[in-house]
């Protein structure tokens, strides 16, 4: 299965009385990068969890093209790549082993042979046999990004992908995301790094206390416009 459109209608999620997401509706298409902005605790991670099919919405529905998470199951997950805040890497395994394991998990052909290429792209070509526990946050972040993208997902979900990256790596990631966009991926990107994504994202969705708030288009930098709605 495949899809080129993601549609959220009235998606809510409560944890007890706390409403993490309140009736969020929006859609996006293949070839779009959507920036997901909002202060801490606004519900960005919950939203990404729902889109990744890990969290079930309390009400409302997410459609991946024609499909829903409940009926499409495994085939849908094959098309989703998630870079979560916790990075999803085994610290006890080496960089190479982590990538090989997840490559095989996703059924990537010749996963073992392709590990070198993935590591090269993460800028970790010479660290293949080093355990991840000894890596700095930035190195882990780069490795986790490769891990999330190694099965060529259609829907790319990134939670704070710029954390811990130096200038060079940030630039490389921005270029990478442009490449994904050109390839027809749907990219959702939660970030606080407004200057970096300025000009990269096609649209922004701003969450505040679980609600989607409109953000005026047009004049001013991303940060100025963001300030105006979150103040």
């Amino acid at each position: 299965m495949d899809f080129t459109r993601l549609t959220l209608s009235d998606v809510s999620r409560n944890f007890g009385r706390r409403r993490a997401l309140a009736r969020v509706s929006f859609d996006c298409d293949a070839g779009e990068i959507v920036g997901l902005l909002g202060p801490n605790g606004a519900g960005k991670s919950t939203l990404l969890g729902i889109l990744a099919t890990l969290v079930a919405p309390s009400s409302g529905e997410v459609r991946y093209g024609e499909h829903t998470a409940r009926e499409a199951g495994a085939e849908l997950r094959r098309r989703i790549g998630l870079l979560a805040h916790d990075l999803h890497l085994y610290p006890e395994l080496t960089a190479g082993e982590n990538l090989e394991f997840f490559g095989r998990l996703y059924g990537v052909r010749d996963a073992r042979a392709r590990v070198a290429g993935w590591l090269e792209r993460a800028g970790l070509g010479d660290r293949r046999d080093d355990p991840v526990s000894g890596f700095s946050r930035g190195m882990r972040q780069r490795l986790a990004l490769e891990r999330a993208l190694l099965h060529d997902p259609r829907l790319v979900l990134l939670d704070e992908p710029f954390t811990g990256l130096d200038d060079g790596a940030t630039f490389a990631l921005v270029e990478r995301l442009r490449g994904l966009k050109a390839k027809g991926c749907l990219v959702l990107l939660a970030t606080h790094d407004l200057e970096t994504v300025e000009g990269l994202v096609d649209r922004v969705a701003v969450l505040r206390e679980g609600r989607l708030v409109e953000m005026a288009g047009g004049g001013g930098s991303l940060r100025e416009r963001f300030r105006a709605v979150t103040r």
């Binding site: 409560n14 007890g16 009385r17 409403r19 309140a22 009736r23």
Partner: peptide
Amino acid sequence: LEDLYLKLED
């Protein structure tokens, strides 16, 4: 009651 609380927030 929980539902009402949530509705109140909406």
